[in-house]
Write a protein that binds this DNA or RNA. Structure first.
Length: 272
DNA sequence: ATGTCGTGCAAAGCACGA
């Protein structure tokens, strides 16, 4: 069983590489973020041709979350109960699905923009809503027997080692104490620390700058990838039932290379 | 600090978000 999470930064623009990647990597389940698609424009038929059912929840121009599965796709939940709005709008940033008995959430956490920006408060409120929903769903699970995970673009670097130069981030979002505390609360709420811990990543590419802290995102701007200026912000938070089945977690850096790449690389989880 | 992308609108240039 292979589960992946990937911020594709427009499904339309990524389609050629995405289809090739599915055929090459053969994931069973893929959680996507930033599809930038409407439900009407979602290319379900092209995914179906490769054997994937899909569910999509999208605004159109911004956001958009989705799930592909070739092992069943049920109990689709669009948005978090009590999810905060921004400028009065409910944004498509959360999609819950059940696949092969795995309860999974595809999450695109708000960026925050700046510490004094309303988007930052929105980000913290969103993380609190994730926490409430995770806690509610975990209470329903039979004695932690069912695997549960929160996957996606959290827009938070868990530690100082998860950004290319911490000095660049002083006073900025993604590294602030409240964001990291919200992430830590989430980790506690799932009965787990992150699954994408360094010791679980033996298959990280040989040319990774720091294999203990593989990045998942490099800005398109400023030649972020060629210069190695990355961040680890695409995360997997999982309960014990999920963690107990994890054989390997790795960042697919090849998907970040070359023309037509998203600014995020997929995080791939191989389970027994 | 911002060299790149992607989108939508309404028009091939800009505003916005990241």
């Amino acid at each position: 069983m292979r589960i992946a999470t990937w911020n594709v930064n427009s499904v339309k623009a990524r389609m050629p590489r995405l289809l090739a990647w599915l055929q090459d990597r053969q994931p069973d389940v893929v959680l996507m973020q930033e599809t930038k698609s409407t439900d009407a424009a979602w290319p379900a038929a092209e995914f179906a041709a490769l054997g994937y059912e899909s569910a999509h929840y999208g605004d159109g121009r911004w956001n958009g979350v989705a799930a592909l599965s070739r092992v069943g796709l049920d109990d689709v939940t669009r948005a978090l109960p009590g999810q905060p709005t921004f400028d009065g709008a409910l944004e498509s940033r959360a999609l819950g699905v059940t696949a092969a008995g795995f309860r999974l959430w595809s999450l695109y956490v708000p960026n925050g923009r700046a510490l004094d920006h309303p988007h930052y408060a929105y980000k913290l409120e969103f993380l609190a809503a994730v926490q409430r929903q995770a806690a509610a769903e975990l209470r329903e699970l039979p004695r932690d027997a069912a695997p549960f995970a929160l996957l996606g673009d959290f827009n938070v670097a868990p530690t100082d080692q998860d950004v290319w130069d911490v000095a660049e981030f002083v006073g900025r979002t993604h590294v602030s104490a409240p964001e990291r505390q919200a992430l830590e609360q989430l980790a506690q709420g799932t009965g787990s620390v992150e699954s994408s811990l360094p010791e679980l990543m033996p298959r990280a590419s040989a040319d990774v700058d720091d294999q203990r802290h593989p990045y998942t995102f490099w800005e398109h701007r400023m030649l972020g990838f060629p210069k190695g200026r990355g961040m680890r912000i695409d995360l997997v938070l999982a309960n014990a039932a999920f963690r107990g089945r994890v054989g390997d977690v790795w960042v697919d850096r090849d998907a970040r290379r070359g023309q037509g790449a998203s600014d995020h690389a997929p995080v791939v989880i191989d389970l027994d």
